[in-house]
Every structure is written in structure tokens, then in C-alpha cells.
Amino acid sequence: MYTYNFFDDIMNLRDLFDDFFSRRTSYEPYREFPYVRIEEEGDKLIITSLMPGIKADDLDIEIIDDSLIISGEKKADYEEKAYLRKERFFGEFKKSIKLPFRISHDNIRADLKDGILTIHLEKSEDSKPRKIDIK
């Protein structure tokens, strides 16, 4: 026995929309390439970025004041072949990331592995919390 319920259809429609919008590709155009994540752990700041197909030689990382600038070029690996699909992005890019505090210029480590760039930064001495003794 089945009773028609109008809301079942509405829910199906909602699922249809959800499925459509969850079928997104890795690159969502409203964000600037490359995508980054900033994490904090005590006095350390860890920046992770997705960089598929980019070689370390084609990448520049700079620190200016409290901004980290990642720039470089993703070189096209197209061959002279009949392409059925071209979805990947190639070209030059530059992204500036404002850091939440000033960082020490001495302890910077950057690794690039399997298309993930990881930058380890440390807070500069003057942005570390300091306890003030009351006399």
C-alpha cells in the first residue's frame, strides 16, 4: 500500500540538486590557484598547498613583511596528439597569503612531494606571547 506524498518528490528534487552540486571537479573557479591551507601549532605555522604537476625549480616562495608570496609556472605537458579532453590548467600563477603574524626568517622549510607543497614557518620573537612580570 502506497500513499502518494508530495514531499517525497520534493526531497527527490533536493537530492538531485545536491548530487549535481557535489559533482564538482578538483578546481573550483572562485578560488585562486594554488589552493592553500594555513594551520597553526604553537609557535609554528604550517602552510599546505596543492601543486599537481609543478616542479620545485618552477616555484618561487618569498616573504615580504607579513605576506607569503607563492609564484611560479605550471608548464604545459601537452603533446602533439589528438586530445579527447583537456581539463587541466597550465600557466603562470602568483598568490599572496597574508600571515596571521610576523614570522622568523631563519627557520623556514619548504617541501614539495606528490603535488603537495608544505611550508613550515615559525613565529618571530617579537610576535611570540610574552609574559610581563608585575613588580
Binding site: 559533482r23 564538482r24 571537479t25 578538483s26 578546481y27 601537452y78 603533446e79 596528439k81 589528438a82 586530445y83 579527447l84 579532453r85 583537456k86 581539463e87 587541466r88 590548467f89
Partner: peptide, 9 residues
């Protein structure tokens, strides 16, 4: 995620 792809034949 659906990874982006280039395909040639």
C-alpha cells in the same frame, strides 16, 4: 573530488 583529466589518443 573528481580529478581533472587530459586524454589523448
Amino acid at each position: 573530488y573528481v580529478p581533472v583529466a587530459d586524454i589523448y589518443e
